[in-house]
Design a binder for these strands. Structure first.
Lengths: 354, 354
DNA sequence: CAGAATTTCAGTTGCGCACCTCAAAAATTG
DNA sequence: CAATTTTTGAGGTGCGCAACTGAAATTCTG
């Protein structure tokens, strides 16, 4: 703007135009402006135009605080989270609790329901018997016909459903809050391939369960890139550690014995303590590249110690807030800004830990 | 909670406790509750305790919409951004504009002032002549005595100052919104070292200007890790490309000629088009590991094409929103949640691009 | 052209809170 | 005990908007 590259004069008037200002300059009453603004019917086209001109002229923008207060509506959301669960789920639950705290100031209320989300019948049952008082539901979904049906049913009943962390893509859910899992797997593969330079050898993949859509998708993405871009690395068939440390330790220990040329391990689920134990016990922790998911107290320690080489992460805080924002915006008929709601695939090395 | 792992009964009452509810259960008047809530004086300790007990019992939380409306205060913030500038700065400016849009609904108003932020005198001058009508300022700082003095002066006058992207650590700014630059440099070095496996060779560092604190810090962090962890890689003294593509192309071309054993380039500033051009012209784009900063349309293309190997990024959208949130929270006397305001060091590979 | 049906508009209320005033009540002091 | 100070109550106002009520203006009908 200004000549010398500096424009530090007095700011433009900080006063907001109110509905009344609009009414006055349009020469109509408050009520008429309200009808135009909120798209109620019963206003002549000519009057609408007059009001809209006034709105444009004054740069009127509704005060969201006043609008919310006047509307006086409040919303109830249910977050369906796993019972028990691993560190990541514990973090997520905690973040949902924080989000609930914040939302309580915004006329939004979150109830956390704990369900065994890995059992399709239990999960579907929980969704089916959900109180009709809820305006929205966030659920760690399972891509299973019964669950899908339950989600579709809720949607039909007018309840907004967002899937959280794990999606049910073919359902009629409103939105998915979580990462692109195949892309996360590809990211891990690229990192693995580059870290291993041109070396030949074997790479193992350990999942919690391939019945879980997110684990399967990560594994798929990983294999896709590894086989096409790094043919000198031989990927073993994926193992299932059931997200259990003890079992994962055994699997890892067996791998290390059976494959002296083991160069890398990609863990696309939980049970990381087992992997760390086995790797450290074998004495090959530094030479084997281990890439895993989710930043927790444990994985952070393994990364700092050098046992783990990279962590692919999704930010549970962001996910919890995003789910709440999407639900609230949908129920209040407000728009959302897509790129604020996109959950990124974080890569953490020892050096960029938050 | 529930026996079968499912607790999907009727939610607790969705009604919010109001100030009046608190007054009634505490057996005092609205005015007294107000005095307690807003920490006004003139209330006996015993009465304070009674009110606080009622607040706790009812789980009372002020309705932020109503509070904001009643308070009726509004805030003006100035964002001091560079004139012209590179892609990153253009993105940032756009994101600040979006943020301004959002903030306008929250009784916050942002004016964007364009200044040549690389000239300490101009920048300090702009800060000094800033209208006193502003409650807060976000500025891309320069770590220079005059700028520092200007910031301290604003702070003394009661204006909240946050530094954005580039800090002035020794000033009395309220908060720094940006990444840990030495850590970003270390991250680049680790990636470089790992990507190059055990190979020997030369690594070049290109900065915009080492007089810029962020560039210097990145370069420092990079060298630190490279020399201590990857001694087989020889880091050349940093070059200054002045964030200019043409000049950076020449520098890069000269590097490629002079150092046949050049294995990697770390660019901790702008001017990436020059690097890409020179690398692609030399035919060594695939063998030289190039790591750079800031995800833009250009760097994204270089990454997808394989010319660039990794991008260290700070999210300008997050930074703009965070600066606005911090300023607003400070002025309104509200708390901020630190881990939501922490700007992460993103690593982007071809596979996890947003 | 009267009367009915419809469209268009103005006026009013209240959301929950902050902030203010003034007077009454209680506690403290000499 | 009276005089003084401290604490509390009652009440009001207004923030900007949504939503409702009822009346006036317009159009339609026979």
């Amino acid at each position: 703007m200004g000549g010398a590259g500096v424009t530090a004069g007095a700011p433009t008037a900080p006063v907001r135009a109110t509905l009344e200002d609009v009414a006055r300059t349009a020469g109509v009453s408050l009520a008429t402006v309200d009808r135009v603004i909120n798209r109620r019917e019963g206003v002549r086209a000519k009057t609408v135009a007059r009001v809209e001109a006034a709105v444009a002229k004054l740069g009127y923008r509704a005060d969201v605080a006043a609008a919310r207060l006047a509307r006086g509506q409040s919303f109830r959301f249910a977050f369906v989270l796993p019972t028990g669960g691993n560190s990541f789920m514990t973090h997520l639950t905690e973040q949902v609790r924080h989000t609930a705290d914040w939302l309580a100031g915004q006329r939004g209320f979150i109830d956390i329901l704990h369900v065994d989300v890995f059992d399709p019948d239990l999960l579907a049952g929980a969704l089916e018997t959900l109180s009709p008082a809820y305006h929205g539901v966030a659920v760690i979904a399972l891509d299973h016909p019964r669950v899908r049906a339950a989600i579709d049913d809720l949607t039909t009943r007018g309840v907004a459903v967002v899937t959280l962390v794990s999606d049910a893509p073919s359902s009629r859910r409103l939105h998915y809050v979580g990462i692109d899992n195949p892309a996360a797997g590809r990211t891990a593969a690229t990192l693995m391939g580059r870290y291993l330079g041109g070396r030949e050898g074997t790479v193992a993949v350990i999942a919690g369960s391939l019945a879980l859509r997110d684990h399967a998708e990560r594994q798929f993405g990983f294999h896709q890139i590894l086989s096409s871009e790094y043919p000198q690395l031989r990927a073993l068939p994926p193992l299932e550690g059931r997200d259990d440390s003890a079992r994962t330790r055994e699997l890892t220990a067996a791998l290390l014995v059976r494959h002296p040329d083991l160069r890398g391990i990609y863990c696309c689920g939980a049970g990381n303590r087992g992997i760390a134990d086995a790797l450290e016990a074998s004495g090959r922790a530094r030479e084997v590249v281990w890439i895993t998911h989710e930043l927790t107290d444990h994985t952070r320690r393994f990364l700092v110690r050098g046992t783990c080489d990279a962590i692919i992460n999704q930010d549970p805080g962001h996910e919890a807030r995003s789910a709440a924002r999407v639900l609230l915006a949908h129920c209040a008929g407000e728009p959302i800004s897509p790129d604020q709601e996109r959950i990124r695939i974080d890569i953490f090395l020892r050096d960029n830990l938050p």
